[in-house]
Design a protein around this nucleic acid. Structure first.
Lengths: 381, 381
DNA sequence: TTGAAAGCGCTAACAC
DNA sequence: GTGTTAGCGCTTTCAA
C-alpha cells in the first residue's frame, strides 16, 4: 500500500457540479442519523475511489469483483480492503449500461382479477429468493399492464429475463413475449408456447394420482368437483389437463367418473356441489376437489351431513400441503408445490442466462406432483 | 425532415462489435417469432437513432421526452413520429446513470416468518399501481435480507426511494434505514422512527370505534380477543395501540373491559378464546376481534354455541371489508383498508421525491379507519 | 428554439 | 498480472 498513487489528470475538464470530487477527502458514507429525508444524497463512492485507495487501476477493481481475470493475492487483498473500507457498492445503472446485464429478473404477477391471491406468495417468495441466490433482483410488474408491461421490461432494458405467471390457454401476451429479446419463462402452459420455456405442475398426472388413490380406497365411482366459473372462464390450461388425467385414469381403472362444474364460490357453492356430487356419486363416492379454496368448504359440507370422511366418502384435494393440513380432518392431497415449480423455473431461467451452459432440452418442464395420504382416504382392506 | 442530416464523425474510432451501427440500415425491431430463446439480443434502438431519423440532435430527443425545455411544434412532431416509427424506448440504465434517478421504488416485503401472507397482496398491488402511475417500477426485496437489503438498494443505486412494511416496535432496520441517502417510508410506526416518514392506520382510533359501537349496541362489558402469541412476539406496535384505544374508550364510556390473549391460532384456538371470553364477559358481552384470520373462527364458534349474533352477543372485527363480508353473518368491522394506507404512503413518497414540492408536514400519518355496521351489531333501542 | 459535447460509473478490449 | 482507454446510451450544461 504505502503512498497514495499519483492521480492521473482527468482527460477532460469536468463541467458538472462534482468536478471537485478528486480533490475531496474520502469520507466514510453518511452516518449522521436523524437528518431529514429530503436532504440531498451524498456523493457516490465509485470504483475509481476504490482503485485510488488500493493503488491499482479501475479495471483491476472491476476484475477483482467479477473474477473474470486472474489477480495476484496481494492485489486482491488490497482491493478488497479498499472496498471494505469505503463500503463500496457498484452502481447498478452504470454496470448495466456497460455490461448489458441488469442483474434483474422481471416478474409478471397476476394481480388483476380473479386470480388466487394467497397462493401467489409462495411463488413470488421463492422466485425472489432464487434470484437473490444468483445476485439478481426482482422487478415486479402487474398483469393488468398486459403486453405493454413486457415490452417495457425488455425495451427499456430493465431486466435480463422475464418470468410470467398465470398463463391462459390462449394468452394474448405469448406472441408478444416471443418477440422480446430477453428470455421469457412461463409458469403455466399455453396452447401455443411459441417456443418459450414453460414450467408447470404435471396436472394430468395429478389427476391420475387422485383417481388412483380413490380406486385404492375401494371406490368404484369418482366425482370431480370442478372449478368455479371464474377459473374456467380464465381458461387456464391446467383445468383441462387435470380433468383429462382424471378421466383417463378412471377409464383405465374402470371407475365411474362424473364432473360437477362449475361450482359457485364460497360455502354455499361448496354445499351445493356436495349435494350434486352425492346424487351422482352413488352410495359411496370418491371425491376429487381440485381447488385450494374449495377443499375446506367441501370437507365441512360433508361433515355437516354426518358423513365420516375416509369411511362413508373419500376426499382427495388438489392443494398445497398447508391447506390440506389446515382442514379437520387433514385432507389427503395432491400437492401443487408452488415452491418446486418456481425453483424449477428459476433454474431454467439461469440456465438460459448462462451462455456457457447449454439451453434446457425440454421446452415444457412438468414438475411431478406428490400425493400424501392423510385422513380422508383409507386403503381398502 | 427531408434529407438525412450529415452525420458527425465519431470523435473516436469504435473498438466494440457495434462499431458499424451508424452504417446499418435502421430496421424495425425483431419480429421473427419462434426463434430460440438463447438467441442473442438485437441491437438497441437508441435516442441517437431517433435523432437521426427525426433530423434533430440527440439532446432534442431527450428534451422532447422529458419536457424540460420548450420545443417547437414541428420538431416535437417529427421526434414523436420517429420514436413511434422506431418503437424507441429509453435505456433505463443509461438514463439512471446520467440523471441519477432510477424510476424504481424499492419495496421491502415481510415474506419471512409469521407475517400474514394473504393480507400482503393488496399492499403490494396498490404500491405497484401507484408507482406505475408515476412511471416508476417496483423492485421487490424480501425482509429476510434484513438491513443488507436496504443498504444494497441504496448503495447500488437500485432505486430512488424505499417502502418498508411490517415494522416492529424496535425494528433493527430503522437505524440503518435512517442513514440511507434515499427516502424511506415506513408502513407501520416504530417506537423511534429516527426521522423517517411513517404511514399507518390509526389503530387507537380503530379500538375506540369498535368499543363505541359495542356501547351503542347496549353492551356494558367488552371483551377483546387478543392477538396470537406469534403476532405479539413480533412486537408490532399496532397491537398496543389498538388495545390502548379500546381500553381508553371503555374507560370513558364506563364499560367493563377484558382482554383474552394470547389466542392460539386456528379453529380450536378461537373456540377456546370464545369460551374464555364468555366466562369473562357476563351474560351479554360485546366482543372485539382484531385479527382477520380469527374473525371467521370466532363467529363460527359463537354460532356453534347457539348464540345469535347481534342479539345475544355482538361482534366487531378489525379486518378488511372483504373478510367481514365473507363471514356468515356478515361481521360489523373496522376496516384496515390496506389500499388507503398504501396509497397514502406512495403519495408521501412522491412528495418526498419531488424536489419542487415541500416535504410532508407530518412525520407520522395515520389513516382514519372506518366502521361498517353489518349483521353482528344492532343499535340498542 | 436548437445543437455540441462532456460525463454519469462501469466493463472489457487491447496493449504490455 | 496489470494498466489504459473507448464506449455503453442517456441527460444536461454551455454556447449560439
Amino acid at each position: 500500500m504505502g503512498t497514495e498513487p499519483a492521480l492521473l489528470p482527468r482527460r477532460t475538464p469536468r463541467v458538472r457540479g462534482l468536478a471537485l470530487r478528486d480533490h475531496l477527502w474520502l469520507t466514510s458514507p453518511a452516518v449522521d442519523t436523524h437528518r431529514h429525508q429530503a436532504e440531498r444524497r451524498s456523493r457516490m463512492v465509485t470504483s475509481r475511489d476504490v482503485a485510488r485507495v488500493a493503488g491499482v487501476s479501475q479495471s483491476t477493481v472491476s476484475y477483482v469483483m467479477s473474477g473474470r481475470r486472474s489477480i495476484s493475492a496481494e492485489t486482491r487483498r488490497r482491493v478488497e480492503a479498499a472496498i471494505e473500507q469505503l463500503t463500496y457498492q457498484p452502481n447498478a445503472g452504470a454496470r448495466a449500461l456497460a455490461s448489458q446485464r441488469t442483474q434483474v429478473i422481471g416478474l409478471v404477477v397476476p394481480f388483476a382479477p380473479g386470480a388466487d391471491p394467497a397462493g401467489l406468495l409462495p411463488f413470488i417468495e421463492t422466485i425472489a429468493s432464487c434470484a437473490r441466490a444468483e445476485d439478481h433482483d426482482v422487478l415486479l410488474v402487474t398483469a393488468d399492464e398486459g403486453s405493454s408491461g413486457l415490452t417495457r421490461l425488455a425495451g427499456r432494458r430493465l431486466c435480463d429475463a422475464i418470468v410470467m405467471m398465470d398463463i391462459g390457454a390462449e394468452d394474448a401476451r405469448i406472441p408478444v413475449a416471443a418477440t422480446l429479446d430477453v428470455p421469457v419463462i412461463l409458469i403455466g402452459v399455453p396452447d401455443d408456447s411459441s417456443g418459450l420455456q414453460c414450467v408447470d405442475v404435471d396436472f394430468a398426472l395429478a389427476g391420475r394420482l387422485a383417481v388412483a388413490e380413490l380406486a385404492a380406497a375401494g371406490h368404484d365411482r369418482v366425482v370431480l368437483i370442478g372449478y368455479t366459473a371464474e377459473v374456467v372462464e380464465r381458461d387456464i390450461n391446467f383445468v383441462r389437463r387435470f380433468q383429462g388425467g382424471a378421466a383417463d385414469a378412471a377409464a383405465e381403472l374402470g371407475l365411474g367418473h362424473e364432473v360437477v362444474a362449475p361450482v359457485a364460490s364460497g360455502r354455499a357453492g361448496a354445499e351445493d356441489a356436495v349435494r350434486r356430487a352425492l346424487e351422482l356419486g352413488g352410495d359411496r363416492p370418491g371425491l376429487v376437489v381440485p381447488n385450494s379454496h374449495v377443499v375446506p368448504h367441501v370437507a365441512q359440507a360433508l361433515l355437516d351431513r354426518g358423513l365420516v370422511l375416509g369411511r362413508d366418502v373419500s376426499l382427495v384435494g388438489l392443494c398445497t400441503d398447508a391447506a390440506a393440513l389446515a382442514c379437520t380432518p387433514a385432507v389427503t392431497n395432491v400437492s401443487l408445490e408452488p415452491r418446486d415449480v418456481s425453483r424449477r423455473a428459476m433454474q431454467t431461467l439461469f440456465q438460459l442466462l448462462d451462455r456457457t451452459a447449454e439451453p434446457p432440452s425440454e421446452l415444457v418442464e412438468l414438475v411431478t406432483p406428490r400425493l400424501t395420504r392423510r385422513e380422508t382416504t383409507l386403503p381398502a382392506p
